[in-house]
Design a protein around this nucleic acid. Structure first.
Lengths: 159, 159
DNA sequence: TATTGTTATACTCTATAACTATA
DNA sequence: TATAGTTATAGAGTATAACAATA
């Protein structure tokens, strides 16, 4: 009662769920994380910490934790843990912010910068594998639409 | 130091994150759930339990918990809790499966069936609001691409 | 031996509230 | 008074492992 590849029938998306946006967003999100994180683990990273590293690399200089949270849409209390992880690995450092002794200047260390290329390659491979069911143009479309969705949503802040 | 709408700058997606599929999938998934679940709560449902209700409605008859899990790609241990919730609300019932005394026949009750139209209307409204930044055609494209992504992914099962 | 449902447990992700040290 | 970072905590979401009943 189980052919090769699953006659059980979980391969096809039930029509009843094809219109459920929550299902369509949550499942891939979860599956992608399960795929990427183990591959980044040998490098001492996860999808989330890698994203933070990329954010820091793209910035003109150090960022405060508050600023990182604003960019990544994550609460500042959550940022603490992520920075702790990266600092523990020696990928970032917490320095001083001239003019504000409350804030921390989170900066990419040489080690953190050096870790980025390999991590990016891993991410690119995993991402390509995960998206392999879609044509290149479709992948761009999908990511573009998701980005616009995110841009349109106010999530927390708004009057 | 905070203009209307957030000069803080979290509105735009940082270029560094536009290529991070994990970020693009996780954030909308999370935000959508935060939006939908409170709206379904007065009806005694959540996005997940509503999805299960829709699955049962579309089925020709009762489904075993194992079957529900296969369709929704959720572990059977997780299904237990969801069925418990729906059963507690009187939306589904656990009956017997002729021929297999291990399995439970999860069936929609009249009350469960009656709850669906209103829940669907709420879901449609929330979904439309969440997708309001996209044109109708784009919404269909997005959901279609997500569905294909899910269809292509093997998640757990495979040789 | 394998499968269905169940329970116990554990892990991740994320946020809220309260505290501190500043501003 | 308000903000940056921290800590403690709580809650959702999900899975694995082990067990009983049954196949």
């Amino acid at each position: 009662m189980r052919t090769r590849g699953g006659s059980v029938g979980a391969r096809v998306i039930p029509p009843a769920l094809r219109g459920s946006l929550g299902f369509l967003l949550n499942k891939p999100a979860h599956e992608y994380r399960e795929l990427l994180d183990p591959r980044l683990e040998p490098l001492g990273l996860t999808g989330k910490t890698l994203a933070m590293l990329k954010l820091l690399e793209a910035a003109p200089g150090p960022l405060t934790q508050h600023r990182i949270g604003a960019l990544a849409r994550v609460d500042r209390s959550t940022i603490v843990t992520l920075v702790d992880l990266l600092e523990g690995r020696g990928f970032v450092s917490r320095g001083k912010v001239p003019g504000d002794r409350r804030a921390h200047a989170v900066a990419l260390t040489p080690k953190g910068r050096a870790a980025l290329p390999a991590a990016r390659r891993v991410e690119a491979r995993v991402q390509a594998a995960f998206l392999s069911g879609l044509a290149p143009a479709e992948r761009r479309t999908l990511m573009g639409l998701l980005a616009r969705l995110l841009q349109a949503s106010r999530s927390k802040e708004e009057a």
